[in-house]
Computed example of a mutant assay.
Amino acid sequence: MLKSRNLLLVVLAASLYVACKTDPAYDKATQLAIDDDKIVNALKASEQTAAFTKDPSGVYYNIISAGEGIAPVIDDTLLIHYVGRTFPQGILFDSTATNVDSLSTKFVLADGIEGWQKGIPLIKPGGRIRLLIPSALGYQNRNLQNVDSALVENTNLDFDIRLISLKHKDNTKNK
């Protein structure tokens, strides 16, 4: 009986240890440096380095067309079409690109991934941009791989985005 109780206590203690074990903290700065090396090497290998500019945040961008009007800010609601691929593999993981503007994606910029928050404001309505987003500014170490997606942890992203329109948040109060 005593042996059974001791064995049960060992199993319980081991179970609690495993259940309480946490993953190491995500080091965004280190991952950003790793991602940047991968992006730079892929751009060099494909001879596309000159086509992209690096934003201070770490996002690489190529403005295909600037658009007209005012650039979006963080609280704006945007209508966009986009194609999302892994970088540099080019595996399509999401797309809303159609020729029908009413089928566009509507969202508040603040709700987008950090790379979108940094890159989309570089264009105006009617503009188009290609963003190479380090995983640290994208989905980070989240594993989003499923039947419809090729996103494993620390996947760098390649988005082709067309900003159709924007609506500024009304910050005025009714009087």
Rank of each mutant, 00 (worst) to 15 (best):
I70W: 02
I113V: 14
N99K: 15
P134H: 05
P88E: 04
N62D: 09
K118E: 12
P121S: 05
G126D: 07
I133A: 04
I64S: 03
T86N: 05
I123D: 05
P72V: 07
H81G: 08
D55K: 03
G119T: 02
G84M: 00
D111Y: 12
D111W: 10
D94I: 06
N99H: 13
S104F: 00
V108W: 08
S65H: 08
S65A: 15
D94C: 11
P88M: 06
Y61Q: 05
P56T: 08
V83S: 09
P56D: 10
Q89T: 15
S135H: 06
T77A: 08
N62Y: 08
P121T: 00
P88L: 05
S65E: 14
L109F: 00
D101W: 09
R128W: 02
I129H: 06
Q117M: 07
Y82A: 04
I123C: 03
I91V: 11
I129V: 15
S104Q: 07
G58D: 04
I120S: 03
V73T: 13
L132F: 08
A110L: 11
P88F: 02
K118G: 04
K106P: 01
G69T: 11
D75T: 13
L103S: 09
G69Q: 06
A71F: 01
F87Y: 15
G90V: 06
A66V: 10
N99P: 07
I123N: 01
L92F: 06
R128N: 11
L79G: 09
K106D: 10
L79V: 15
R130Y: 04
T105V: 13
I133N: 00
K118Q: 15
R128S: 14
I64R: 11
L79T: 12
P121W: 05
